[in-house]
């Protein structure tokens, strides 16, 4: 068993002329928070809808809990809690009444399910306020409450912090983290806010124009964005050899024909410079660089950047 909660293979969605999702392979591991990161309109919601069987898949496959979702959506729904975009509720009812209806329809047995869910998202229980009078943030919170009502193993949350104030965002972040760490839930979350995802996710998938550009754990991604020294030389293989032999340097990477990255920033650059010159390697530049995650995303999304 490969142990993924959600796995997609060559997942593709075409709307008319436009390919909204293009051959996406996602791998979501149990008990982890997976952040799907991308700008507006790149296909995050579409991917989630396909994973949930809410919209037909053009081509490719989705496995949820190790089984192909096609045809057995109904069997896995009770194990999933989801919000897709901003979910609707009955406007003529209060938040509590709305959740009571959904809880009952779900066959939730726990009598305090509604109360607990509301407490988690910070909405008052048995409040008199009708849903039609809710603010955007309150609606979003109620949506999250509905998603966690039946204590599902897997949560799929499409921009859950949309419309929340900064304190609300922090609260939601904390309890999402809690659900994952304390209760071992697997969570797929989408966002266009890099800093949000960086604070929350264990694994990150970066998506742009329907294409999954990179999928990696946050640690790995952050490693790529440590400080480094960019060394511009005339002959990269030769320079690398010298670095390895004379300076016992292992932690470096070759960027292109003329650029090396040295990840140990405590190196004695003067000595390195001198050693390279001695071997007839021209050093045209050495520069301390400090990429943030943001710079990284900017680069891999082709300069457009992200939030």
């Amino acid at each position: 068993m490969d142990g993924y909660i959600i796995e997609t293979r060559q997942l593709t969605k075409v709307y008319g002329e436009q390919t909204a999702v293009n051959n996406v392979d996602l791998h979501i591991k149990p008990g982890r928070i997976y952040g799907l990161l991308g700008r507006n309109g790149v296909g995050k919601t579409t991917i989630m809808k396909m994973v949930l069987g809410l919209t037909p898949i053009t081509s490719g496959e989705v496995d949820v809990f190790g089984k192909n979702i096609k045809g057995c959506e109904k069997r896995v729904y009770p194990r999933i809690g989801a919000i897709i975009e901003t979910p609707g509720f009955y406007p003529n009812l209060t938040g509590t009444e709305n959740l009571e209806i959904f809880a009952k329809l779900r066959g939730t047995t726990c009598p305090d399910a509604v109360k607990n869910a509301l407490e988690i998202v910070g909405l008052p229980y048995k409040d008199k306020k009708l849903f039609s009078k809710y603010s955007l943030g309150m609606k979003q919170r109620l949506g999250i409450a509905n998603a966690i009502l039946h204590d599902p193993e897997l949560l799929i949350l499409d921009e859950p912090t949309n419309g929340l104030d900064p304190i609300g965002i922090a609260e939601v972040r904390n309890f999402i983290k809690d659900l994952s760490v304390v209760r071992g839930k697997t969570i797929l979350i989408s966002s266009h806010i890099l800093s949000e995802v960086a604070l929350l996710a264990d694994d990150i998938g970066i998506i742009d124009h329907g294409v999954l550009l990179e999928e990696n754990s946050l640690e790995e991604l952050q490693k790529k964005n440590n400080k480094y020294i960019m060394l511009r030389v005339s002959d990269v293989p030769k320079a690398a050899l010298i670095l390895e032999q004379q300076f016992k340097l292992k932690d470096y990477s070759v960027q292109d024909d003329h650029v090396l990255r040295l990840y140990d920033t405590s190196l004695d650059m003067a000595a390195i410079n001198k050693a390279l010159m001695m071997q007839d390697i021209a050093v045209s530049g050495a520069q301390l660089c400090n990429d943030t995650l943001e710079d990284y995303f900017k680069k891999i999304t082709g300069g457009e950047g992200i939030a």
Partner: peptide, 17 residues
């Protein structure tokens, strides 16, 4: 019609109903 207009259809569908 309200299930569609009030966008509760998705939530109901995912219960599943």
């Amino acid at each position: 019609c309200r299930e569609e207009q009030e966008d509760t259809q998705k939530s109901l569908h995912m219960i599943p109903i």
